[in-house]
Amino acid sequence: MRARPARGRQAFAWHYLRVSGVLIVALVFVHLFVMHYASLPSAATAAFVGARWAAAGWRAFDWMLLLLALTHGVVGAHAMLRDVARRPLSRTALDVTAGAVTAAFLGLGTAVILMAAPPGDRGPLSSYTWIPSLLTGGLVTIATAAYVGVLAAGAALGMRLARRDPIGRWNYPGQWMFAINRTAGAGVLGFLLVHVLDVALFPFAPDLYDRTVAAYAMPYLIPMEAGLVAAVVYHAFDGLRLMLLEALDRRASRMAAPSFIALVVLTISLSLPALAVLLGWRP
Protein backbone atom coordinates (compact mmCIF):
# COMPACT_ATOMS: atom_id res chain seq x y z
CA MET A 1 0.00 0.00 0.00
CA ARG A 2 1.59 3.25 -1.07
CA ALA A 3 0.96 6.07 1.32
CA ARG A 4 0.09 9.74 1.19
CA PRO A 5 0.83 12.43 3.71
CA ALA A 6 -1.90 12.75 6.30
CA ARG A 7 -3.66 16.07 6.15
CA GLY A 8 -6.38 18.02 7.85
CA ARG A 9 -7.12 19.35 11.30
CA GLN A 10 -7.81 15.95 12.83
CA ALA A 11 -4.56 14.48 11.49
CA PHE A 12 -2.59 17.38 12.98
CA ALA A 13 -4.28 16.99 16.39
CA TRP A 14 -3.76 13.21 16.35
CA HIS A 15 -0.02 13.57 15.66
CA TYR A 16 0.55 16.52 17.99
CA LEU A 17 -1.21 14.91 20.94
CA ARG A 18 0.98 11.82 20.60
CA VAL A 19 4.29 13.62 20.10
CA SER A 20 3.66 16.09 22.95
CA GLY A 21 2.27 13.26 25.10
CA VAL A 22 5.46 11.23 24.78
CA LEU A 23 7.63 14.27 25.48
CA ILE A 24 5.61 15.42 28.48
CA VAL A 25 5.04 12.19 30.37
CA ALA A 26 8.40 12.07 32.22
CA LEU A 27 8.16 15.77 33.11
CA VAL A 28 4.66 15.31 34.49
CA PHE A 29 5.63 12.44 36.76
CA VAL A 30 8.65 14.34 38.12
CA HIS A 31 6.34 17.32 38.80
CA LEU A 32 3.76 15.10 40.50
CA PHE A 33 6.44 13.49 42.67
CA VAL A 34 7.93 16.80 43.78
CA MET A 35 4.64 18.62 44.39
CA HIS A 36 2.28 15.87 45.55
CA TYR A 37 4.32 13.00 46.96
CA ALA A 38 7.41 14.61 48.44
CA SER A 39 5.62 17.79 49.45
CA LEU A 40 2.26 19.54 49.55
CA PRO A 41 0.86 22.01 47.01
CA SER A 42 0.17 24.42 49.90
CA ALA A 43 3.86 24.22 50.88
CA ALA A 44 4.98 25.60 47.51
CA THR A 45 5.44 29.08 48.97
CA ALA A 46 7.28 32.00 47.40
CA ALA A 47 10.40 30.90 49.29
CA PHE A 48 10.06 27.40 47.76
CA VAL A 49 9.58 28.79 44.24
CA GLY A 50 12.45 31.26 44.69
CA ALA A 51 14.81 28.48 45.79
CA ARG A 52 13.67 26.25 42.93
CA TRP A 53 14.03 28.89 40.25
CA ALA A 54 17.48 29.88 41.47
CA ALA A 55 18.58 26.90 39.37
CA ALA A 56 18.40 27.45 35.61
CA GLY A 57 17.66 23.74 35.12
CA TRP A 58 14.40 23.96 37.09
CA ARG A 59 13.38 27.05 35.14
CA ALA A 60 13.98 25.20 31.88
CA PHE A 61 12.11 22.17 33.25
CA ASP A 62 9.09 24.26 34.30
CA TRP A 63 9.02 26.14 31.00
CA MET A 64 9.08 22.90 29.00
CA LEU A 65 6.31 21.53 31.20
CA LEU A 66 4.26 24.69 30.67
CA LEU A 67 4.82 24.69 26.90
CA LEU A 68 3.95 21.02 26.41
CA ALA A 69 1.10 20.82 28.94
CA LEU A 70 -0.57 23.98 27.68
CA THR A 71 -0.30 23.16 23.98
CA HIS A 72 -1.25 19.50 24.55
CA GLY A 73 -4.29 20.63 26.54
CA VAL A 74 -5.38 23.34 24.12
CA VAL A 75 -4.94 21.15 21.03
CA GLY A 76 -6.92 18.36 22.75
CA ALA A 77 -9.70 20.67 23.94
CA HIS A 78 -9.85 22.40 20.55
CA ALA A 79 -10.12 19.05 18.73
CA MET A 80 -12.84 17.93 21.15
CA LEU A 81 -14.91 21.10 20.83
CA ARG A 82 -14.30 21.55 17.08
CA ASP A 83 -15.86 18.12 16.55
CA VAL A 84 -19.15 19.29 18.04
CA ALA A 85 -19.15 22.88 16.76
CA ARG A 86 -21.32 22.92 13.65
CA ARG A 87 -21.61 26.55 12.60
CA PRO A 88 -18.70 28.26 10.80
CA LEU A 89 -18.88 31.16 13.24
CA SER A 90 -18.57 28.83 16.25
CA ARG A 91 -15.62 27.11 14.61
CA THR A 92 -13.86 30.40 13.91
CA ALA A 93 -14.51 31.56 17.48
CA LEU A 94 -13.01 28.31 18.76
CA ASP A 95 -9.91 28.68 16.58
CA VAL A 96 -9.39 32.27 17.72
CA THR A 97 -9.98 31.39 21.40
CA ALA A 98 -7.53 28.48 21.26
CA GLY A 99 -4.84 30.67 19.72
CA ALA A 100 -5.48 33.54 22.16
CA VAL A 101 -5.46 31.29 25.25
CA THR A 102 -2.22 29.63 24.15
CA ALA A 103 -0.51 32.94 23.39
CA ALA A 104 -1.70 34.66 26.57
CA PHE A 105 -0.92 31.87 29.04
CA LEU A 106 2.32 30.84 27.37
CA GLY A 107 3.44 34.48 27.24
CA LEU A 108 2.50 35.09 30.88
CA GLY A 109 4.07 31.84 32.07
CA THR A 110 7.27 32.46 30.12
CA ALA A 111 7.57 35.99 31.49
CA VAL A 112 7.04 34.79 35.07
CA ILE A 113 9.66 32.05 34.73
CA LEU A 114 12.17 34.50 33.28
CA MET A 115 11.55 37.26 35.85
CA ALA A 116 13.53 37.53 39.07
CA ALA A 117 11.71 37.60 42.39
CA PRO A 118 11.37 41.00 44.09
CA PRO A 119 13.86 41.68 46.87
CA GLY A 120 11.32 41.66 49.73
CA ASP A 121 8.01 39.97 50.55
CA ARG A 122 5.98 42.59 48.75
CA GLY A 123 5.77 43.49 45.08
CA PRO A 124 4.02 46.04 42.82
CA LEU A 125 0.67 44.17 42.98
CA SER A 126 0.67 43.56 46.74
CA SER A 127 -1.97 46.21 47.36
CA TYR A 128 -4.50 44.27 45.19
CA THR A 129 -5.58 42.03 48.03
CA TRP A 130 -8.67 40.80 46.18
CA ILE A 131 -6.54 38.75 43.75
CA PRO A 132 -6.02 35.73 46.09
CA SER A 133 -9.77 35.71 46.83
CA LEU A 134 -10.50 35.69 43.10
CA LEU A 135 -8.08 32.83 42.41
CA THR A 136 -9.29 30.84 45.41
CA GLY A 137 -12.82 31.43 44.18
CA GLY A 138 -11.76 29.98 40.82
CA LEU A 139 -10.37 26.88 42.53
CA VAL A 140 -13.52 26.48 44.63
CA THR A 141 -15.64 26.84 41.48
CA ILE A 142 -13.64 24.13 39.66
CA ALA A 143 -13.89 21.89 42.74
CA THR A 144 -17.65 22.46 43.06
CA ALA A 145 -18.22 21.79 39.36
CA ALA A 146 -16.21 18.57 39.66
CA TYR A 147 -18.07 17.38 42.79
CA VAL A 148 -21.50 18.21 41.37
CA GLY A 149 -20.60 16.65 38.01
CA VAL A 150 -19.41 13.39 39.57
CA LEU A 151 -22.44 13.19 41.90
CA ALA A 152 -24.92 14.00 39.11
CA ALA A 153 -23.37 11.48 36.71
CA GLY A 154 -23.31 8.82 39.43
CA ALA A 155 -26.93 9.51 40.40
CA ALA A 156 -28.11 9.41 36.77
CA LEU A 157 -26.33 6.11 36.16
CA GLY A 158 -27.54 4.67 39.46
CA MET A 159 -31.16 5.57 38.69
CA ARG A 160 -30.97 3.94 35.27
CA LEU A 161 -29.44 0.80 36.74
CA ALA A 162 -32.05 0.71 39.52
CA ARG A 163 -34.85 0.99 36.95
CA ARG A 164 -33.08 -1.58 34.77
CA ASP A 165 -33.09 0.89 31.91
CA PRO A 166 -30.40 0.55 29.25
CA ILE A 167 -27.34 2.63 30.01
CA GLY A 168 -26.40 3.41 26.43
CA ARG A 169 -22.82 2.79 25.40
CA TRP A 170 -21.71 2.75 29.07
CA ASN A 171 -21.89 -1.03 28.80
CA TYR A 172 -18.55 -0.96 27.04
CA PRO A 173 -15.21 -0.54 28.83
CA GLY A 174 -13.87 1.44 25.87
CA GLN A 175 -16.62 4.02 26.41
CA TRP A 176 -15.52 4.53 30.03
CA MET A 177 -11.85 4.80 29.07
CA PHE A 178 -12.68 7.35 26.36
CA ALA A 179 -14.99 9.46 28.55
CA ILE A 180 -12.67 9.45 31.58
CA ASN A 181 -9.72 10.35 29.35
CA ARG A 182 -11.54 13.38 27.97
CA THR A 183 -12.95 14.47 31.32
CA ALA A 184 -9.54 14.11 32.98
CA GLY A 185 -7.86 16.09 30.20
CA ALA A 186 -10.43 18.90 30.41
CA GLY A 187 -10.10 19.03 34.22
CA VAL A 188 -6.32 19.18 34.13
CA LEU A 189 -6.37 21.93 31.49
CA GLY A 190 -8.83 23.98 33.60
CA PHE A 191 -6.60 23.65 36.64
CA LEU A 192 -3.46 24.44 34.61
CA LEU A 193 -4.91 27.80 33.54
CA VAL A 194 -5.73 28.75 37.15
CA HIS A 195 -2.30 27.50 38.24
CA VAL A 196 -0.49 29.69 35.68
CA LEU A 197 -2.41 32.68 37.06
CA ASP A 198 -1.55 31.93 40.68
CA VAL A 199 2.15 31.35 39.94
CA ALA A 200 2.08 34.65 38.00
CA LEU A 201 1.68 36.39 41.37
CA PHE A 202 5.12 35.21 42.46
CA PRO A 203 7.22 37.98 40.83
CA PHE A 204 4.58 40.70 41.33
CA ALA A 205 3.28 40.02 44.85
CA PRO A 206 4.98 37.17 46.73
CA ASP A 207 2.84 37.83 49.82
CA LEU A 208 -0.37 37.41 47.80
CA TYR A 209 1.07 34.33 46.11
CA ASP A 210 1.65 32.79 49.57
CA ARG A 211 -1.95 33.54 50.55
CA THR A 212 -3.19 31.92 47.35
CA VAL A 213 -1.23 28.68 47.70
CA ALA A 214 -2.24 28.48 51.37
CA ALA A 215 -5.80 27.96 50.09
CA TYR A 216 -4.74 24.57 48.72
CA ALA A 217 -4.81 23.34 52.33
CA MET A 218 -8.59 23.99 52.56
CA PRO A 219 -10.34 20.69 53.34
CA TYR A 220 -12.96 21.49 50.68
CA LEU A 221 -10.27 21.47 47.97
CA ILE A 222 -8.46 18.31 49.06
CA PRO A 223 -10.73 15.84 47.19
CA MET A 224 -10.28 17.96 44.05
CA GLU A 225 -6.50 18.00 44.44
CA ALA A 226 -6.44 14.21 44.89
CA GLY A 227 -8.77 13.97 41.88
CA LEU A 228 -6.38 16.09 39.85
CA VAL A 229 -3.49 13.75 40.67
CA ALA A 230 -5.71 10.83 39.64
CA ALA A 231 -6.72 12.67 36.46
CA VAL A 232 -3.09 13.27 35.48
CA VAL A 233 -2.09 9.67 36.23
CA TYR A 234 -5.08 8.25 34.35
CA HIS A 235 -4.69 10.55 31.35
CA ALA A 236 -0.97 9.78 31.08
CA PHE A 237 -1.32 6.00 31.31
CA ASP A 238 -4.36 5.89 29.04
CA GLY A 239 -2.44 7.92 26.47
CA LEU A 240 0.48 5.50 26.70
CA ARG A 241 -1.95 2.57 26.39
CA LEU A 242 -3.44 4.07 23.23
CA MET A 243 -0.03 4.64 21.68
CA LEU A 244 1.07 1.11 22.53
CA LEU A 245 -2.14 -0.24 21.04
CA GLU A 246 -1.61 1.79 17.89
CA ALA A 247 1.99 0.61 17.59
CA LEU A 248 0.97 -3.04 17.68
CA ASP A 249 -0.28 -4.73 14.56
CA ARG A 250 -2.10 -7.24 16.69
CA ARG A 251 -5.66 -7.55 17.83
CA ALA A 252 -4.72 -5.85 21.09
CA SER A 253 -7.97 -3.90 21.01
CA ARG A 254 -9.70 -7.02 22.33
CA MET A 255 -7.96 -6.24 25.61
CA ALA A 256 -10.43 -3.43 26.40
CA ALA A 257 -11.82 -4.79 29.69
CA PRO A 258 -8.50 -6.00 31.19
CA SER A 259 -6.72 -2.79 30.20
CA PHE A 260 -9.52 -0.68 31.73
CA ILE A 261 -9.24 -2.59 35.01
CA ALA A 262 -5.45 -2.23 34.94
CA LEU A 263 -5.79 1.52 34.32
CA VAL A 264 -8.19 1.98 37.23
CA VAL A 265 -6.00 -0.07 39.60
CA LEU A 266 -2.87 1.82 38.52
CA THR A 267 -4.57 5.20 38.90
CA ILE A 268 -5.93 4.42 42.37
CA SER A 269 -2.62 2.92 43.51
CA LEU A 270 -0.62 5.94 42.41
CA SER A 271 -3.17 8.49 43.67
CA LEU A 272 -3.64 7.09 47.16
CA PRO A 273 -0.15 8.18 48.40
CA ALA A 274 -0.89 11.72 47.17
CA LEU A 275 -4.22 11.68 49.02
CA ALA A 276 -2.51 10.43 52.16
CA VAL A 277 0.05 13.26 51.93
CA LEU A 278 -2.77 15.78 51.41
CA LEU A 279 -4.49 14.42 54.53
CA GLY A 280 -1.39 14.97 56.62
CA TRP A 281 0.47 11.65 56.40
CA ARG A 282 4.25 11.97 56.22
CA PRO A 283 6.54 9.11 55.20
Partner: peptide, 11 residues
Protein backbone atom coordinates in the same frame (compact mmCIF):
# COMPACT_ATOMS: atom_id res chain seq x y z
CA UNK B 1 -7.67 10.46 12.39
CA UNK B 2 -11.16 11.19 13.71
CA UNK B 3 -11.12 7.78 15.42
CA UNK B 4 -10.14 7.88 19.11
CA UNK B 5 -9.46 4.15 19.41
CA UNK B 6 -12.41 3.68 21.77
CA UNK B 7 -12.71 0.07 20.64
CA UNK B 8 -16.49 -0.44 21.05
CA UNK B 9 -16.52 -1.54 17.40
CA UNK B 10 -14.28 -4.49 18.24
CA UNK B 11 -16.28 -5.42 21.33
Amino acid sequence: FACHSVGNCVT
